[in-house]
Simulated assay, not measured.
Amino acid sequence: MDSRAILERLIAFDTVSSNPNRALMDWVQTYLAQAGIEAVLIPDASGGKANLYATVGPKDRGGVMLSGHTDVVPVEGQDWTVPPFKLTAKDGRLYGRGTTDMKGFCAAAIAALVAASKRDLKTPLHLALSYDEEIGCMGVRSLVAMLKDAPVRPALCIVGEPTNMAVATGHKGKTALRATCQGREGHSALAPLALNALHLAADFIGVIRAEQASIAASGRRDGDYDVPYTTVHAGVMRGGVQVNIVPNQAVIDFEIRALAEDDPNEIIARLRDAAEAIVAPLRAEFPEAAIRIERLWDYPGLGTPSNAEVVNFVKGLTGANGTIKVAFGTEGGLFSQHLGIPTVICGPGSMAQGHKPDEFVSEEQMARCEAMLQALVDRLEAGI
C-alpha cells in the first residue's frame, strides 16, 4: 500500500479520544507483520487502547524515531460536507477527520517503515504511534516509560504534527489546574452572613488576570511565538445551585501555557500565595474558607536549539532554510525532557485545518512528506 491507501484505512477508524483505538493499532500491527516487521503494542489497563512501537534495521544503535498520535477530536456539532470517517479526495485535497492532525503523517510513516524494511539499513528507523494525545499527551507516557528502560533509545525524533513541512524546534508546555473555592452556604436574604464561594472565585480570577498582566509586562519573551510570553488562562467556572442560595463551593479550571524556559511551578507558587491572601482574613469568621489549587495534568514544552544536530539533519531532508515554533503542544516535549531524545516537529498540513469540519491535508503536502521520509530512509541506509 502507498501512503494514501494507508491513510484511507486509518481515517475509517473512529478514534476520537473517548473511543478505543485498539482496532486501528491491531490493523497496523498486522499490516507491518505482513511486511516482516514486528510491532509491539503497549495496551492501557482496559486493553481498549494501545501505543505501538516498531523498529527496522539494527537494534544496537539509536537511529531516528517517527512519532505520531492516532486519536482525533470529536466531530459532533460540526457542519461537515463530507463523511468525516471516510477519505474523500477532491481538488487536490484529502478530506477526513485526522487527515492533517495527524493520520496523514502516520500513514506516510507506516509506508516509510515498510519501504525501509526492504533496504539494508545501517542505522535503524523506529515508529512510535500513541493514543490520547488530544487530551493532554496522556497515552504516550507508557511508551516513554518503555523507552526509558530500553537498552538503546532513538538518537533523534521527528514528531509529525502539521507544520506545512517546516521544521519546528519548539512549543509551549501546558499545565492544567483546578482551584476549588470553599465558602459557607446560606439563604440569599441573609447573604452577608454567609461566605459566597462564587465571590471567592471571582477574586481568584482577578489574581489570575493580575499574574498574566505581570508576565506580559515583564516576563521572559520569545518572538517566535504569536503570543511571545507565558500565558495564564481561566477556561471554566462552576458554582451555585439557584439564586436564593449563597453557594458554598465554586470551581475554576485554568491553565498555564509556559515557554520552555519558564517554570510553571514558580507561577503556581505565586498563585497559591495570592489565594491564601484572599482567604486568610476571612478565617476568623469562616474557618472553612479556602482556595485549594490542584494540578490536573501537564506536558512539558519543547525548546530544541536551532543549531542542534537534529535540526540540521531534518532541514537537510526537507531543504528548509529556517525554523519555526508552533502554538500547539505535542508529545515532543516528553521525548526531549524525559528521555533526552533531541526532537523536532515536522509534518504535512496546517493546524489551521485541524479540529475543524472538512479537515483536510493537501496532496502536495503529503508528497513533500513522502519525499522527506524517502530521503530519510536513504540516509539511514547510508549509515548517517
Rank of each mutant, 00 (worst) to 15 (best):
V326T: 02
G333P: 12
P151W: 08
A250N: 04
Q374K: 11
Q212E: 15
A202R: 06
V232S: 12
A258L: 05
M165A: 07
T15C: 04
G48S: 07
S130N: 13
A289K: 01
T343R: 02
A107Q: 05
V232F: 05
N248G: 15
N21F: 04
L339Y: 09
I37G: 01
F313L: 10
M372P: 06
Y225H: 02
L193N: 08
E370Q: 14
E381D: 10
V75Q: 04
Q212M: 15
L127S: 10
K148E: 13
P162N: 13
T100I: 03
E38I: 12
I324H: 00
E161D: 14
N244S: 11
Q78M: 10
Y53V: 15
Y225I: 00
V311C: 01
N196C: 09
A12E: 12
N321P: 02
S188T: 11
V361S: 04
N321G: 15
G332T: 03
I256V: 10
L32T: 06
A320F: 08
F254Q: 06
T163R: 01
L52T: 00
R22S: 06
A290D: 07
A54E: 05
A234P: 05
K325M: 07
V279K: 02
E276I: 05
S130Y: 08
A382Q: 12
S350A: 14
G36K: 13
A23I: 00
A201P: 04
